[in-house]
Computed example of a mutant assay.
Amino acid sequence: MAQAFTDPLKLRFHSDDEPAEKVINYWSHDHPLFLTVVPPQAKNNNMPTDDDPITVCHCCVRPISSSTYYYSCKHDGCSFTLHKYCVELPRTLQQHALHQQRDHPLHLVKLVHTFLLCDACDKRCNTFFYECGQRDCYFRIDVNCAFLPKIIKHEYFHKEHHLVQHTGPSWISRCKICEQNFYKHVGYKCDACNFRLDLHCALKSPYSLPHRYCKGGHEVPLMCPPIEDHPEDFYCEICEEEMNPLIPLYYCGKCKNSFHIRCLSRVYRYENYLREGSLNDPYYHNHPLTFVRRKKPSKEVCYRCNGDINGFLFLECRTGNCSYCLCLECWEPHPEHI
Rank of each mutant, 00 (worst) to 15 (best):
residue 114 T to G: 03
residue 114 T to F: 02
residue 114 T to V: 01
residue 116 L to P: 01
residue 116 L to D: 02
residue 116 L to T: 01
residue 117 L to I: 04
residue 117 L to S: 08
residue 118 C to K: 04
residue 118 C to I: 07
residue 118 C to R: 04
residue 119 D to Y: 01
residue 120 A to M: 10
residue 121 C to V: 05
residue 122 D to H: 11
residue 122 D to M: 08
residue 123 K to L: 03
residue 124 R to W: 09
residue 124 R to Y: 12
residue 125 C to A: 09
residue 125 C to Q: 03
residue 125 C to S: 06
residue 126 N to S: 04
residue 127 T to W: 08
residue 128 F to Q: 11
residue 128 F to V: 09
residue 128 F to S: 05
residue 129 F to A: 03
residue 129 F to M: 05
residue 130 Y to L: 10
residue 130 Y to A: 04
residue 131 E to H: 08
residue 131 E to D: 09
residue 131 E to Q: 10
residue 132 C to F: 01
residue 134 Q to T: 09
residue 135 R to W: 07
residue 136 D to F: 11
residue 136 D to E: 04
residue 137 C to R: 01
residue 137 C to H: 15
residue 137 C to S: 01
residue 137 C to E: 02
residue 138 Y to K: 08
residue 138 Y to P: 02
residue 139 F to Y: 15
residue 140 R to F: 03
residue 141 I to Q: 03
residue 144 N to P: 04
residue 144 N to C: 13
residue 145 C to L: 05
residue 145 C to V: 04
residue 147 F to P: 08
residue 147 F to T: 01
residue 147 F to L: 06
residue 149 P to M: 11
residue 150 K to R: 14
residue 151 I to A: 03
residue 152 I to H: 02
residue 152 I to R: 02
residue 153 K to Q: 15
residue 153 K to P: 01
residue 153 K to V: 02
residue 154 H to E: 06
residue 154 H to N: 14
residue 155 E to R: 09
residue 156 Y to K: 00
residue 157 F to N: 00
residue 157 F to W: 06
residue 159 K to F: 05
residue 160 E to I: 09
residue 160 E to K: 15
residue 161 H to R: 11
residue 161 H to P: 11
residue 161 H to Q: 08
residue 161 H to G: 09
residue 162 H to F: 07
residue 164 V to A: 12
residue 164 V to Y: 12
residue 165 Q to Y: 07
residue 165 Q to H: 07
residue 166 H to P: 00
residue 167 T to D: 04
residue 167 T to W: 05
residue 168 G to W: 03
residue 168 G to P: 15
residue 169 P to K: 13
residue 170 S to L: 12
residue 170 S to H: 11
residue 171 W to P: 11
residue 171 W to D: 11
residue 171 W to G: 09
residue 172 I to S: 07
residue 173 S to W: 13
residue 173 S to Q: 14
residue 174 R to C: 12
residue 175 C to D: 00
residue 175 C to W: 00
residue 176 K to V: 01
residue 176 K to Q: 13
residue 177 I to F: 04
residue 178 C to G: 05
residue 179 E to K: 15
